[in-house]
Design a protein around this nucleic acid. Structure first.
Lengths: 233, 233
DNA sequence: GAGTGGTCTAGACCACTCA
DNA sequence: GAGTGGTCTAGACCACTCC
């Protein structure tokens, strides 16, 4: 009587994905062209295109003009991590969020920080050290430098009740960011703040942001070794 | 004489992105509807839609039917990491890749591993321990469990020249994966293999994969503290 | 030169959600 | 009920790349 429901690009993606997983299309093998798939599946080429682009983004197929689409030999899987505000991260766990400002200073940056941000020696910087707690337990120690050239209004903020993270998000836009994650041994200062032994392994997330060519902020976020960064694919 | 080049969805995305960064549209403010933007920018609604969807994926705007599109108050930025094969990761740095199988055993899994994978006590598993080197220096210690129920052919492989990672990628498809990253103190065994002091901080990446409901493999990849996982946004 | 993916357009209908 | 985003279609042209 009635026609079947229109096929969606997700349906197509899942069907192609299934064929690849079931080895109906071997790794390295060519996938039929968009036109052919569209005809076979009863969809428009644009719909097939959207499905294939999604698979390409996920690393399942590789596409090249003229040569066509192939099942990836070495699927480069990608992991996505959402980087929420610490406060939201803690509240999402159902824990009570706490914030404390440990120190606030205006002055020149250390040589390492200047080199990392590409700033001259005379650049005026705001240096903040904060602690974020979950149910009163140390959760993240934040060591942040803010360029007062890029964000002059930061000099007028005391950051005693609002963390620089939240303040910057609403105040200072950025165009580029670089994240790095690594393990390190807790320095004496970090260990004291987080309630660990000096030298204990800590999980460090470091972020640099720029607005155009101007560096905005450099932050080192240090977590106790119980911290896990998890994602699903 | 001639018309300007057709506007692309990237152009539109960048223009909208610029307006948001320049605070022409404040955080929380409503963005004009797709129809209006299409008219203003001289593009089709589908093109504007694609640009807005990309901004939504990046967390810059939030979209809801009927209510429309708003500039995100708390942009939930996301970081994307590509997870290549270790060999590729090392070769991409211009270093020589080396691989060594340290041990290979068939038998029951430890209780912890079974619990993690949701497997019964009698499940037959393949346990592999390997070392990946970059220019002869230890780069990653791989401790892997493979379910012989899910991947029976793994039992016939000796894994002496090809790492289980590469072998599985070409042999055993998976539908779901979970990644976890964290810092830990090197165990005595890990320290010995990586040439570190026991208790030294190490960067651990753990991955579980399933094919449908069946667990395929659990791997713990341990890196020396010099390892950094980096991404740009 | 020719084949394949990349993308834009114009129009249409649907789905969700708010009032 | 009505407004907005979500998506499909059909057609077209472009851009890249291999031959």
């Amino acid at each position: 009587m009635s026609e079947a429901r229109r096929i969606s690009w997700r349906d197509i993606r899942d069907e192609l994905s299934r064929r690849i997983a079931a080895r109906e299309w071997q790794p390295g093998a060519a996938v039929p062209g968009e036109e052919a798939l569209a005809a076979e599946l009863g969809a428009a080429r644009a719909t097939v295109n959207r499905a294939l682009q999604d698979l390409a983004r996920a690393g399942v197929v590789e596409r090249k003009r003229k040569s066509g689409t192939r099942v990836a030999l070495h699927p480069v899987r990608e992991a996505r991590f959402v980087i929420p505000l610490v406060r939201r991260e803690i509240e999402a766990r159902g824990a009570d969020y706490g914030y404390a400002l440990l120190s606030r200073e205006v002055g020149p940056a250390t040589e390492i920080v200047r080199a990392r941000l590409g700033l001259p020696a005379e650049a005026r910087m705001l240096h903040l050290r904060c602690l974020h707690t979950a149910d009163r337990a140390p959760y993240q120690y934040e060591d942040r430098w803010i360029s007062l050239d890029a964000v002059p209004t930061a000099g007028a903020e005391n950051f005693e009740t609002v963390g620089p993270n939240e303040w910057l998000v609403e105040t200072a836009p950025f165009s580029e960011a670089e994240f790095a994650f690594f393990a390190a041994a807790a320095t004496a200062g970090e260990a004291a703040v987080l309630g660990l032994q000096p030298g204990a392994p800590v999980f460090v997330a470091e972020r640099l942001t720029w607005l155009g060519a101007r560096p905005v902020t450099l932050v080192r976020m240090v977590h106790p070794p119980t911290h896990r960064m998890v994602t699903h694919i």
